[in-house]
Simulated scan of single mutants.
Amino acid sequence: MVFWVPLIVWALAIVVAVLMSLRGSRPFSLAVLADELLRYILLLPVGLQGLWAFMGHVFFAEQSAAAIGWATSPFQAEVGMANLGIGVAGVVGAFLGSPGFRAAVGIVALGFLGGAGMVHAIQIEETGNLASGNAGPIFYTDFLTPLAVLGLLLIQRVLGPVPQR
């Protein structure tokens, strides 16, 4: 699952965002597409994947640690709680968040996920740990997800307001 979940949520976010952009009551534009992409990246890769990581680290700590190639640790509960907060903030930001709230979610995700990605990179370099939870898709989405949120917010700022639904 550690290998597939990041790929599945990203694929779903892109497909649903494109479909909603084309189907929506607003005329299609790059601004509408950016808005929908931001919404579904917040909902799926940030929100649902954050909640999935929370459940894994808190309720399935041994399996999660093994997937990362690490020993089980009490710190997993802390990591799980951080994922819970980010996941809930992503879900809220998807539908209720102002640009400022969404930016805050992106910054927190960049700090946490980007930091986790750097730890994974160090582990790959220093120990050769190529476990799927360390060097698989999760490694890349640790950087991609928060950068996509912040990048889409910047694109929205440049393109201007989007017509409301």
Results as ranks from 00 to 15, higher is better:
M1W: 14
M1A: 06
P6R: 02
L12W: 08
I14P: 05
V16A: 03
A17M: 06
V18L: 10
L19A: 15
M20F: 08
S21A: 13
S21R: 05
S25H: 11
R26E: 03
P27H: 07
F28W: 13
S29N: 13
L30Q: 09
A31N: 13
A31S: 15
V32S: 05
V32A: 02
L33F: 08
D35Y: 09
D35W: 07
D35G: 14
L37R: 11
R39M: 14
Y40I: 00
Y40K: 00
L42K: 11
L43N: 06
V46M: 12
G47Y: 03
L48T: 04
L48S: 01
G50F: 03
G50R: 09
G50E: 11
L51C: 06
W52K: 05
F54E: 05
F54P: 01
M55Y: 15
M55C: 13
G56P: 01
H57R: 00
F59A: 13
F59Y: 15
A61Q: 12
A61K: 13
A61L: 06
E62V: 13
E62L: 12
Q63P: 01
S64C: 02
S64H: 12
A66P: 01
A66C: 00
I68V: 15
W70Y: 07
A71P: 04
S73G: 07
P74M: 08
P74N: 10
F75Q: 00
F75L: 12
Q76R: 13
Q76C: 12
E78I: 15
G80S: 06
G80W: 02
A82E: 10
N83R: 10
L84Q: 06
G85P: 03
I86F: 02
G87R: 08
V88E: 12
V91C: 02
V92E: 05
A94S: 15
F95W: 15
L96T: 00
P99S: 11
F101C: 05
F101K: 06
R102I: 08
A104Q: 08
A104R: 10
I107P: 04
V108D: 01
A109C: 10
L110C: 05
L110Q: 11
F112V: 11
F112Y: 14
L113D: 04
G114C: 01
M118L: 15
V119M: 14
A121F: 15
A121P: 08
I124T: 03
I124C: 02
I124N: 02
E125S: 13
E126K: 15
T127G: 02
T127M: 11
G128N: 14
L130I: 07
A131W: 05
A131H: 11
S132Q: 08
A135R: 02
G136W: 11
P137Y: 00
I138R: 12
I138K: 10
F139Y: 07
Y140T: 01
D142C: 13
L144T: 00
L144K: 00
T145N: 06
P146D: 04
L147V: 02
L147E: 01
A148I: 03
V149Q: 01
G151Y: 07
G151A: 06
L152C: 13
L154T: 10
I155T: 14
L159S: 07
L159I: 09
P161Y: 12
V162G: 09
P163K: 08
P163F: 02
P163A: 11
P163Q: 10
Q164E: 14
Q164M: 12
Q164S: 14
R165K: 12
